[in-house]
Amino acid sequence: MNRSRFPSRQIILVTGAARSGKSEWAETLATQTGKSVVYVATATIDPSDSQWQARIEKHRLRRPAEWQTLQVPIELAATFEAATPPQCLLVDSLGTWVANLLDRDETTWENIAFELLDRLQQAAVDIILVAEETGWGVVPAYPSGRLFRDRLGDLVRQIGAIADSVYLVVGGHVLNLTLLGKPLKNSKLSSQGN
């Protein structure tokens, strides 16, 4: 990974189960940077889904008023490229972003994921990414569920391989996996030479 251009910026991955507190921890980390925070929301807004709107509103009300919000359901790599210091991007969430691209064929998806990882490594700003852990349950019985789980799992693993810090949030408790764990050396990203 080439950090010589921006040695002081960092990539942070926060992962965990639904309702575990991962977004709140990511928001805490973003605040601690002391930088101008840009909340990158990957969800699409559907006015007909009141439950989804309530979830979005709950997240919005928890964030500081001075944070800027960008709706980025697809073009996440371009957002990384366009960000300028002293910003901190908080991306919530990778799972929603992957779901937004689930209709792409495998080759197109691989190109999109590669571009995302490349732009992430080249970004000039701190980036905090929130990701869901979907692989702890049963194997989904339907093809789109398996495809989602596999794409998100692969992407989270690849981001974890290049992140400066990786946190797991479970039951409202935070574990710093960078300090407690040991990275696997055989990740896809390593085998691609990145």
Rank of each mutant, 00 (worst) to 15 (best):
D46M: 02
D118I: 14
A161P: 02
A54D: 13
N111G: 14
P64G: 03
L116Y: 01
G160W: 02
P86E: 09
V14Y: 00
R9A: 10
A83T: 06
G34L: 08
D126V: 06
E132R: 10
L102T: 06
G193L: 02
S36G: 08
F114C: 13
A82I: 14
E132C: 15
R3P: 03
V169H: 07
A131S: 07
V156D: 04
W52V: 08
V174N: 12
G21A: 02
E27C: 03
S191T: 13
P86T: 07
M1C: 10
L89A: 06
D118L: 15
L102H: 00
A123W: 00
E57K: 15
Q32P: 07
L179F: 14
Q192H: 10
N194Q: 12
S191F: 13
G172M: 04
V14I: 01
S48P: 03
T134F: 02
E66Q: 13
L90R: 00
V14H: 02
L13G: 00
G171H: 04
F148Y: 11
T107E: 14
S23E: 10
R55N: 11
F148S: 05
R119M: 01
P7D: 13
P64M: 06
L116D: 00
V72E: 05
F148K: 07
G16H: 04
A161L: 04
A141D: 12
I162S: 09
E81Q: 15
R9H: 09
S50C: 12
M1P: 09
A113Y: 02
A43Q: 05
D150E: 09
L120R: 02
A30N: 01
K35V: 04
S23F: 06
S8G: 14
N176S: 12
S165N: 12
L152N: 03
D103G: 07
R3M: 08
I11V: 13
I127T: 04
G21E: 03
A30G: 02
E81A: 15
K35M: 13
